[in-house]
């Protein structure tokens, strides 16, 4: 197998990796905010549930969580899991990253001085207006460095999709490497992850710069 055949075979895997990456972000960035807000719910039951969720997600390997989401329906309910691979994968990733993002959001929200809330309250803003217009923009600026960290980790974590035999770039690299007794596929995968993260860093840097107009 020539280098260019390897590359073109792996290209489909790269697309799949990007798909997992993008869908995870699209799902977990907003879900994380919902989780962060529910964690401050006035109902103790809700708070307790969210705390347990975050604790379990952070306390167990993502690889194990993916296996549970994929095989769980079969072992627990005897359901057929024929078309369940991709949904289980995305579900696992989204719920995992939402938990981490939620904690980042929470830290950001709690770092905003109480005076900001009071100023907004005296000016007559509603709770929703206060959050959307005053608090959230400041939170986003503060948490950008932590978000960048998570996004970079996510790029690399997508390789865990191989546990569910999903044919993304890392699974393919493993397969081709074994069949061709060559290390080149891993090298290609490595360059791919590095370049992807380089792009992530660049984009996040630009966003941080754009938010630099105030302190």
């Amino acid at each position: 197998m020539t280098f260019s055949t390897m590359l073109s075979t792996m290209a489909t895997g790269m697309l799949r990796t990007f798909g997992v990456f993008a869908l995870t972000l699209i799902g977990s960035l907003p879900l994380g905010m919902i989780v962060a807000l529910l964690r401050k719910s006035r109902f103790a039951v809700v708070r307790g549930f969210i705390r347990a969720y975050i604790s379990i997600i952070r306390g167990t390997p993502l690889m194990l969580q993916l296996l549970v989401w994929y095989f769980g329906p079969f072992y627990l309910f005897g359901m057929s899991i024929g078309n369940w691979r991709f949904p289980a994968l995305i579900l696992g990733f989204v719920l995992n990253y939402a938990a981490y993002f939620a904690e980042i959001y929470r830290g950001g929200i709690e770092s905003i001085p109480v005076g900001q809330y009071e100023a907004a309250e005296v000016l007559g803003y509603t709770k929703t207006q206060t959050f959307m217009r005053i608090i959230l923009p400041q939170v986003i600026k503060r948490i950008m460095p932590s978000i960048t960290n998570e996004v970079i980790t996510l790029v690399k974590d997508t390789s865990l999709a191989f546990t569910l035999a999903y044919q993304e770039v890392f699974s393919l690299a493993k397969q081709i490497s074994a069949s061709q007794t060559s290390f080149t596929p891993f090298f290609i995968a490595g360059v791919f992850y590095f370049v992807a993260n380089y792009v992530v860093e660049f984009i996040m840097f630009r966003i941080e710069k754009a938010l630099d107009y105030y302190k």
Binding site: G115, Q116, E118, A119, G124, Y125, R133, P137, Y214
Partner: peptide, 23 residues
Amino acid sequence: FQQFNLFPHYNILKNLTDAPIHV
């Protein structure tokens, strides 16, 4: 307030107009 509590992400004009417009 003692600590001013201006909105740091809004410029001075917007600090003065945001609530009149949106509240």
